[in-house]
Structure formats: structure tokens, C-alpha cells
């Protein structure tokens, strides 16, 4: 296949359960448990589950944590929840930092 094609990355796509499993390396039971814990969100329930393509990032992260630290599924769910909270706090921190004057660090500690 030629490599100079202009490729379009996935955007707001939905992916099937099989694809989520294949691309993340998570097993079927692990995905089911992570959904039960609320760590992974289903786009569409019913006979064939589908997921938002964004969920793949979380699923891959869960699999990495499992492989590198030997986490079980509840461990993965807790780690994902904490990481989500940290990212939310970091975002809030960036918002607040964005409201501060640039390059003013160090000038605040002004003592008479």
C-alpha cells in the first residue's frame, strides 16, 4: 500500500466491541466489568455494544496499566477514575493559570 496517501484519522466515530477489544488488548470480560464500573461508557446498548472512538483511549490506558502493574479490573477502574479526576483538576489549573498575567511569576512576593 502506498504511504503517501493522505489519511484521515478517526473522528466522531463509533466502534464495535470487537474492535475495541482488538485495538486495546482488553478481554471481553474486562470490558464488561469496566462498563459495569462505569469506567467505559457504551454508546449504544442492546445486542451489539458500540463505543465512542474516544473510549478507545481509555481502554488502551486500562490495558497498559494492567500489563505494566498487574492491575485487576477493579484496580483498572479505580486508576481510570483517579486519572480522570487529575485531568479535570489539571484542566481547571490551566484555566486559572490562563487568567494570570504572563511572566509575572516571582513578582507577586513583593514585601515592603
Amino acid at each position: 500500500m502506498p504511504d503517501d496517501l493522505t489519511l484521515l484519522p478517526d473522528r466522531e466515530d463509533v466502534i464495535a466491541l470487537d474492535e475495541l477489544m482488538a485495538c486495546s488488548g482488553l478481554a471481553h470480560d474486562e470490558v464488561v466489568e469496566l462498563v459495569e464500573f462505569g469506567a467505559l461508557a457504551i454508546e449504544q446498548r442492546g445486542t451489539a455494544w458500540t463505543f465512542h472512538s474516544r473510549t478507545l483511549v481509555l481502554a488502551r490506558r486500562a490495558a497498559r496499566l494492567r500489563d505494566d502493574f498487574g492491575l485487576n479490573t477493579p484496580g483498572m477502574a479505580v486508576a481510570l477514575a483517579y486519572l480522570e479526576r487529575i485531568e479535570g483538576l489539571e484542566r481547571r489549573l490551566r484555566e486559572l493559570e490562563a487568567c494570570l498575567p504572563k511572566g509575572d511569576a516571582g513578582q507577586d512576593a513583593w514585601i515592603a
Binding site: 503517501d4 489519511l7 484519522p9
Partner: peptide
């Protein structure tokens, strides 16, 4: 080395 072009939306 493999050159690849990707259209970033």
C-alpha cells in the same frame, strides 16, 4: 523510515 501524510481535521 516511512513517510506518511495525515490530514488533521
Amino acid at each position: 523510515s516511512r513517510a506518511t501524510k495525515v490530514r488533521v481535521p
